[in-house]
Amino acid sequence: MNQQEILRYSPKELLNIYPFLEAFFAGQSWILKLDQQQKLGLLLEQVDEEQQEDYAFDKADFIGQLSDFISQMETFMGKKDKAVETLMVLPGQNKSGEAETFSELIFKTQTITSIVGPTGSGKSRLLADIEWVAQADTPTMRRVLINNEKPDTSWRFSGNKKLVAQLSQNMNFVMDLSVIEFLELHAKSRMVANSDELIRRIIDAANELVGEKFERYMPITSLSGGQSRALMIADTALLSQSPVVLIDEIENAGIDRKKALKILTGEDKIVLMATHDPILALMADQRIVIKNGGIYKVIQTSEAEKAMLAELEKADQKLQLLRMSLRQGEILAE
């Protein structure tokens, strides 16, 4: 639909054709009522100089943006992008300008990669390279390929298509909404139709991860640390559009970390995890060691390490049980 055509429709008619315009119209509610029957062209004609000043409104600018928005949303919704199946990082250099020695680094969906290295070693630089789908145009000179191809620049610039979703220990919910309202809002912003079933699955999945279950009507800001983290993980797994999930540590309290990772990989995510916890690091299929701004080593988790993981998990379970007994006021014994 071009600019001329748009003007021949009323806001109500436009909304029927393009339900996503609700958010766009909401910003201009002084002139556009959602149920307005008058043609947009006529409505705009009625806007006088003073109103334009008052509402900081520019007709040409408005109609241009509206038509941009419609065409972008149409491409966004119509075009089913090929799913991201692999992400490949080709070597660049470290902070001293020395070439990285790995040949290629591959991240596949449903796999977990842990990232280790001291603070300031370049972990966030690696993540930024991935987020920006670097093409030898960042300080590390690395290149990132998606599905073995040089990716489209829309990964860099578009507001509703981001490659990486993040989960970190420092994150909090800040919106004053209940769990259900919050998930509905997120689903709406993603233009998910019939979100009820999906929302139910998210809540169930989150409750699978925590000891104490939460209810859908609870305010998100009142959830415990573990419940919040569980909801964030389930929501990111099932409702985030980003194919890659970066986790910055998962604390060991109040949440089943193994199940959490399973939810993410089960939803075809590529999971990257910055951690120094041996249990988490060994749950990964491979781990990257970062040193002096460069990727120093890529280690595949060996059978011996996997065997060690079993031991560690046993010890961890024991600790968890002791913690639970302690909470219930019991005397601790072997």
């Binding site: 910003g27 943006q65 509703n160 993040q166 994150m171 919910f173 997120h186 912003s189 409702l239």
Partner: peptide, 20 residues
């Protein structure tokens, strides 16, 4: 870095709707 991924996405969608 301090709000949830979902809130980031909702906020970005709000910005996008205002300035596509």
């Amino acid at each position: 870095d301090i709000v949830s991924q979902a809130e980031r996405e909702v906020f970005a969608a709000g910005v996008y709707a205002v300035n596509p």
